[in-house]
Design a protein around this nucleic acid. Structure first.
Lengths: 311, 311
DNA sequence: TCGGGGGTTGGGAGCGCTCCCACGGCGGAG
DNA sequence: CTCCGCCGTGGGAGCGCTCCCAACCCCCGA
């Protein structure tokens, strides 16, 4: 079934059907109605390949997921982003590629990456929008307000009366962690953290980092962790050495992962919406593809403090 | 850059380049080498749209994800499947669609669905492989050995000396849960469970279901839960009423989710590999697309008992 | 020596669509 | 009343590829 057949049924030409399908102006209402009814009655679906060949678009965008090796709690983030992206793509198709060598035949590209080194698919000259701020490079991106979230966490610990707080900062090459810690520092103002220690994104690494921190600074009464995964390790370590959470030490995480709600004690954390992130990134990309002008280079989405038992 | 240009550089015709690119026989080694070097030096990539239009394939498969409303712990499963699928697709492109009204222009379709009602995208007449056994219907599928996993869980509780076990069975329309419970019953043999209660896939529902079960059967010493999410609710409820886990009551979950490792006590559970599931399903679909004969209608992957603190 | 067949290669015909140009008819201005 | 311009429409060209058939060459057997 092709354009020609639809045209015949509607009593018009191929061109006119094409015009109607593409919503271009210059078709009389009567003709438009006739075509639409023919399309509906035949359940006609345009051949996407032919469209791409003849036209200048493919109506397909790539979603490139660059995997980190020690991903642990990122699954919910990824599915959230993906869900948001597919719903924000406005009819375009999403080709998903994990660690792709190259991507071609797409109109645009969304890149979801944990680390700051943007691993752009090579040989690609289409608009790109990143999900998550890159550490460098002038690419458009959409990100959660990690800085603001860090501020929320900092104010919260201050409000709880915690005066000697440690920070488990995560990897220095993950922009989200860097921003969170920066926000946290800002909230503390004149009284800086008692110690800031980098670590990997795993509970074990968080536990080890906190052990190191406590060795040099035993009288800590609060810990801010760049991610929930790290926080879970921190809580585990604190309890293993007999410290009570939150009575002796308050712990705050970041992400509001499922794990944060089921661990004991349930984690106070900062919530971000992965789905909104994906949806917004898709919207931003589509806007660029449709030729919209004056688009913001970066978009930052609000975060929210969720107070539970650990603080 | 197109076939013609490559042909010119290689000093052959369009047809010959096409033959080389498609790996068809009947090309002399010398010619083949010349073409391959031309392709490499130009970094030529075939236009996918033109290929689809002229040929009979699109080299694209749809990955249809049908979302359930009360998904809670499924994110890791989904990303695992997706990861496996993309790596098993052997160069084909994966178009991901979440709850799509319709899908077209694909060679085949993978459907990831929690519930047993297979929500096939309509108007689709291509090979389909399901990830997870459907409750009905003769479609090809790949699934974890949920039955075998249930047996493992049952034997384990028997070995632990648990004689009065309850089962939180999950929804009756989720094939995976049905199978897990069936396997569990089989392992118990002549001494059936003290009670089997359906519930939703959330901790809260699990807690509520267990509360109901304990009301009628207070002397239970073991609980098998169809998923980890349910098990986490069960553990929470048991502790809330003062029962010790595992001293008083053993609890076994299913999925080996991240939450199972971070909750207290860490859950004994049955592990399945979502990535293998996706990879195998992709392989099965590709095999069918390439015309392979005598393919198995269903493929079942092994599961594994993981013993932790809750039993 | 000649004819037949197999192994290679080239070129034409489309796939179904979009884009562009040309054409016809109608209304308003001169 | 005539001319111009615009709106609505039709049809040709061509996107880059695959498929098919014809052409060619070379080697073999008769």
């Amino acid at each position: 079934m092709n354009l020609e057949e639809v045209a015949r049924l509607a009593g018009v030409s191929r061109s006119t059907v094409s015009r109607v399908l593409n919503g271009s102006s210059g078709v009389s209402p009567a003709t438009r109605a006739a075509v639409e009814s023919a399309v509906a009655s035949m359940r006609y679906l345009p051949n996407q390949a032919a469209r791409s060949l003849a036209g200048t678009r493919t109506d397909t965008v790539a979603v490139v997921v660059s995997e980190v090796h020690d991903r642990v709690f990122d699954d919910a983030f990824l599915t959230g982003v993906l869900r948001g992206v597919t719903s924000g793509l406005d009819g375009r198709r999403a080709v998903v590629a994990v660690n792709p060598p190259s991507v071609s035949d797409v109109d645009g590209c969304l890149v979801v990456s944990m680390d700051g080194h943007d691993p752009l698919p090579r040989g690609l000259s289409v608009p790109v929008v990143l999900v998550g701020r890159p550490l460098s490079g002038g690419l458009a991106y959409v990100d959660s307000d990690n800085l603001g979230g860090g501020v929320l966490a900092g104010r919260h610990l201050v409000a709880r009366g915690r005066a000697r707080v440690g920070v488990l900062a995560g990897p220095p090459d993950v922009a989200a962690c860097v921003d969170r810690v920066a926000g946290f520092r800002r909230a503390l103002g004149g009284s800086p953290p008692a110690g800031v220690v980098p670590c990997a994104l795993t509970p074990d690494s968080g536990a080890a980092a906190l052990a190191g921190l406590l060795a040099s600074t035993p009288d800590i009464d609060g810990v801010f962790c760049a991610t929930d995964a790290i926080a879970i390790g921190a809580v585990r370590y604190l309890r293993s050495v007999g410290a009570r959470v939150p009575e002796d030490v308050s712990v705050v995480g970041f992400d509001d992962s499922v794990a944060a709600t089921v661990c004991t004690p349930a984690l106070t954390t900062v919530r971000q919406s992965a789905e909104d992130l994906g949806n917004t990134a898709a919207w931003r990309l589509v806007a660029e593809l449709t030729g919209e002008q004056d688009l913001p280079q970066s978009i930052v989405l609000a975060t929210e403090l969720v107070i539970r038992e650990s603080s």
